[in-house]
Simulated scan of single mutants.
Amino acid sequence: MHYGRWMLKLSPQQYLERLTDYSENKRLNYLSAYPNPDLCLNIITEVGFGTGPMKPFLGHPNPHYPLVFPDMPGVNRVRFPFHRPENLLTFQWFKHNIMCRGQPWICGHRQF
C-alpha cells in the first residue's frame, strides 16, 4: 500500500508486475550500508534498482571504505567503489550473482 498505491499510484497488479520484472534495464538507485572498521569495509544491507535517480546513501558508511555484500556461500567477495558504485554494481551483476543463486527460476534455471 505504502510504496505501490500511495507513492507510485499503481494498482496492485501494476505494482506486482514492476516488483517481479527481472529484465535488466534497471540501474542502482538505492543503497544502504554500515561501516565495519575492523575490516575497513562498508557492508551493504539493502539495494534497490529501478529507473529513478540514485538516492543518498542510507546508514552511515565510511567514504574511505569500499562497499561489499555480507559473506555469502558461493559468492566471491566483490569490492564496489564507494563513489559511483552504480558503475559496477549493476542489476545484471546483482541478478546473476545474488538473486539467481537463491532463486534459480529468475534466470530460467530449474530448481532441483
Rank of each mutant, 00 (worst) to 15 (best):
R18H: 07
Y15G: 02
L58P: 00
R27K: 14
E17H: 08
P37M: 08
W105G: 14
S23R: 06
A33K: 00
N25C: 01
L8C: 14
Q13R: 08
I106W: 08
P61Y: 06
Y65C: 06
P37H: 05
I106V: 15
P85F: 03
N36F: 15
L10E: 12
Y65S: 05
I106E: 08
G4L: 08
N97W: 00
K55Q: 07
E24M: 10
M7F: 13
T20Q: 09
N29A: 02
E86P: 05
E86C: 08
F57V: 03
G74D: 03
C40Q: 10
L89I: 10
R110S: 14
T20I: 10
P35I: 01
K9H: 11
L67M: 07
F94C: 03
R27L: 02
Q13S: 09
R84Q: 13
P37S: 09
W6E: 12
C107F: 05
G59E: 02
P85M: 12
P66I: 00
F80D: 00
G50L: 14
P73L: 13
F57S: 05
E86W: 06
H109F: 13
A33V: 00
P73F: 15
F112S: 15
N25G: 02
R101Y: 07
F57A: 02
Y65I: 06
S23K: 05
W6F: 11
M7N: 11
L58N: 11
F94V: 04
M72A: 12
N36D: 14
M99A: 04
Q92N: 13
P53Q: 08
V75K: 01
M54C: 10
G4R: 14
G52T: 14
E17N: 13
N97T: 10
P85L: 11
L58H: 09
P56Q: 15
T20W: 10
Q14Y: 08
K9S: 15
I106K: 07
P63F: 14
L10K: 09
P37Y: 05
R110C: 11
D38P: 00
G59M: 02
N87C: 03
A33R: 00
M54L: 14
M54P: 07
Q111T: 12
P66T: 00
